[in-house]
Design a protein around this nucleic acid. Structure first.
Lengths: 333, 333
DNA sequence: ATGAAAGCGCTAACAA
DNA sequence: TTGTTAGCGCTTTCAT
C-alpha cells in the first residue's frame, strides 16, 4: 500500500529495526546511517502508520469529544479550546455529537472503545449521560467540561455556578429591581443547576422574597423559555427582572417579551449566563455571566492528557472551578 | 491489556480464528459454537480492537473533517450533518480546526495521513487550502463542502452561488430599491466569490447600473464589514439596499448602520447569505439566502464514503449543487 | 551500532 | 466446521 519502514530499510541497506530506531530518535544509531535513513524517508514521503504503532505501543493518541449538540452556540468554543490543546500535544479528537439520542450515544461509546481512545471529554447536557460514566467503568480517563453530575469521581472543569448565579442576581438587585424571577431547566443532580442556588442565595441575603410564581422551569429549548415567559406575562404578574439560566434560553425570553409588546429592560430586565457570541451583538445586548469557554476547553483537554500520561500513578483527579465574570449590557440596565 | 479474541478462544475452547469468524458473522461456523462464542464475548465485555483490524484490513473507517473555524456559526451545522451521516455508516470523524493557521493545517495533514484516514472533508475558507489538495496528492478521496476552489478535480457539495446572489439581488430589486450595493470578500478563485457574479447579473439584467463605489471588499471578519459600511455612510453616498456576501458580514453591516444612526430597512435595506441561526432571531430579522447546511454536510459525508468504498472503480467524482432559498425577513422590506 | 526475531490483535488464505 | 499459519507495520528485547 503505502511506504513502510521496510521500503526504507531496503533502500538504505539496513534492517528495518534500524530504520525504526533512526526515525524515532532512539539512542544508539550511527549519525551517518541516521541521516541517510531520514533522507530516504523524506524522499519516499514516508508517513509512519499510526495504527501499527498504536497496536504495539497501546497508545492511540486519540481522545473522544462527546457533546450533546455542536450547533448549540455554547459548545463550539469549548470544542475549539479542546481541539487546540489536543493537537498541540499530538492527540487527535474524535467528534461525537450525541444529539441527546441514546442510541447514538451508545454507538459512540462502542466506536470510542473499539478505537481505543485514551480518554473522553464529556460535555453532558443532562444527567442520563451517567450511562457513559458507567460504561467506561472507570477504566478510561474521563474529564467533564462545562457541566457534570453532582456526584462523580471524575475530573471536571466547571464554572462556579453558585457564584455565577449569585453575581447575576446581585447585579439585578444592585440595579434596584425589587422583584426578580428565574427561568431555567430543572435538571436534578447536575452542576449547572446550582445557578438557581446562587440565585436563591442572593435573593435571600438581600432581603427579597423568593416567589415561586416567578420561578419557572422548562426544557433546554429556546421555545420552552419563550412559552414560559409568555405565560407569565399573560398571567399579568411578572417580576421586574429575570435571571435566565443560560443565554440560549434568555434569547427565547427576549423574544417572548418582545412578542408580548413589552420592552427590555424598561418593563423587564434580563440577564443570562454563558456569554455566547450572539449575546454581544448590538441587536441583542444581553447582560450575562461570562464563561471562559475556550480556556475551559483547553484546560479540560490538558487535564485529560495529563491523566492519560500519568496512568497508573497516584490518582490525580480533580475538579477545577473557573471564575464567572459579570458582563453588563443593555438588557439589564 | 483488554480482552482479545484469544481470551475468548481459550474459554470457548476453540481456535481464535473461529472466534474471529463467529464474531464477524462469516460463513461456515457451527451455530452452537457461534452462540457460545458470542455469549462469552459479551460476558467478557469484549470490544474488538479497531486498530488491529484496520492494520490488517487497510480500512480505518475514519475520515478527517477540516474546517477553518468551528466557532463561526456557519460551520457547526455543516459539521453536525457530516457527523450524523458518518456515524450512521460506522465512520469516525477526526475534527480538525485549522484556525486559518498554516502551521496547524500542516500538523493536521500529518495527523490525518498517519492515522490513515480514508478520506477528507474540507470546508475551505480561502484558496490557500489548495495546499491540502496538493498534499493529499490525489491519493486520498477528498470532498469539498460549502466552498471550493474554482478549479479542482475533487468532488464538492456547493450551493448555487450565482443563483443565490441573483435571487438575493433580484429580491431587493423587486422591493423597488433603485440603487443596490455589495459588501463582501474578494477571494479569487473560490466558488463563494460567485455570489458577486450573481449580484452583477441581476443588476445588469434589470437595467440598473453597477456602481463601483457601492461595491466594497474586505476580509471575513465582522469588523471589516462594519468598517466598510461606516466608511460608505460617512462619504454621504450610500445605496438604498445592500447585498452582503454572508450573514456574518451582514451582521457587521447591521451594526455599522445602526451605529451611524440610520435604520434598517428604512434607510438601507440589507440581505445576507447563509441563514445562520442568529439571522432569524427576532431582534435581527436578517433577510438572507438559506443554505441547507445540515443536508449539505450529510450529503458530502455520504459522497465521500461512497468514493471511499468504490475505490479503484471508475471515477465517480462529482459536484453537487444545492438550491438556495430566499428567506425574507424585516431587514429588506 | 546493527540485525534477528517476537509479538501487538486481528483477518484471511490454506489445510484438515 | 474448525485449526494452523502468515502477515498487516511497527516497537522492542536480545544477540552480535
Amino acid at each position: 500500500m503505502s511506504v513502510t519502514i521496510k521500503d526504507i530499510a531496503r533502500q538504505a541497506e539496513v534492517s528495518y529495526a534500524t530504520v525504526s530506531r533512526a526515525l524515532n530518535d532512539k539512542y544508539g544509531v550511527n549519525p551517518r546511517t541516521r541521516d541517510k535513513i531520514i533522507k530516504i524517508a523524506e524522499e519516499l514521503h514516508y508517513r509512519p502508520n499510526a495504527l501499527a504503532r498504536s497496536l504495539v505501543s497501546s497508545r492511540s493518541f486519540t481522545i473522544g469529544l462527546v457533546l450533546p449538540d455542536i450547533t448549540n452556540p455554547y459548545f463550539p468554543e469549548i470544542a475549539a479550546g479542546i481541539e487546540k490543546a489536543s493537537i498541540e500535544q499530538g492527540y487527535g479528537v474524535l467528534l461525537c455529537n450525541t444529539d441527546g439520542d441514546i442510541q447514538r450515544e451508545k454507538r459512540y461509546m462502542r466506536l470510542l472503545a473499539e478505537r481505543r481512545v485514551e480518554g473522553i471529554l464529556l460535555a453532558p447536557a443532562i444527567s442520563k449521560t451517567e450511562d457513559m460514566e458507567f460504561q467506561t467503568q472507570n477504566s478510561l480517563p474521563l474529564v467533564y467540561v462545562s457541566n457534570a453530575p453532582l456526584k462523580t469521581s471524575h475530573s471536571a472543569v466547571l464554572i462556579d455556578n453558585i457564584r455565577g448565579g449569585y453575581i447575576a442576581t446581585k447585579h439585578l438587585i444592585d440595579c434596584g429591581y425589587g422583584t426578580i424571577g428565574f427561568i431555567g431547566v430543572h435538571e436534578e443532580d447536575m452542576r449547572d443547576n446550582e445557578r438557581f442556588e446562587g440565585f436563591r442565595n442572593a435573593i435571600e441575603r438581600h432581603g427579597l422574597r423568593m416567589e415561586e410564581k416567578y420561578c419557572r422551569f422548562g426544557t433546554f429549548r429556546q421555545e420552552s423559555a419563550y412559552q414560559l415567559i409568555r405565560e407569565m406575562i399573560s398571567e399579568k404578574d411578572v417580576p421586574r427582572a429575570l435571571f435566565v439560566e443560560n443565554d440560549n434560553l434568555a434569547i427565547g425570553v427576549l423574544h417572548g417579551i418582545k412578542d408580548s409588546g413589552l420592552k427590555v429592560p424598561e418593563d423587564i430586565a434580563v440577564i443570562g449566563f454563558d456569554d455566547i457570541s450572539y449575546s454581544s451583538y448590538s441587536e441583542v445586548q444581553l447582560s450575562t455571566i461570562r464563561q471562559p469557554k475556550d480556556r475551559m476547553g483547553s484546560l479540560a483537554a490538558k487535564m485529560l492528557i495529563e491523566e492519560i500520561e500519568s496512568a497508573g500513578k497516584d490518582n490525580n483527579r480533580r475538579t477545577v472551578i473557573v471564575e464567572p465574570e459579570l458582563v453588563v449590557r443593555q438588557s439589564s440596565c
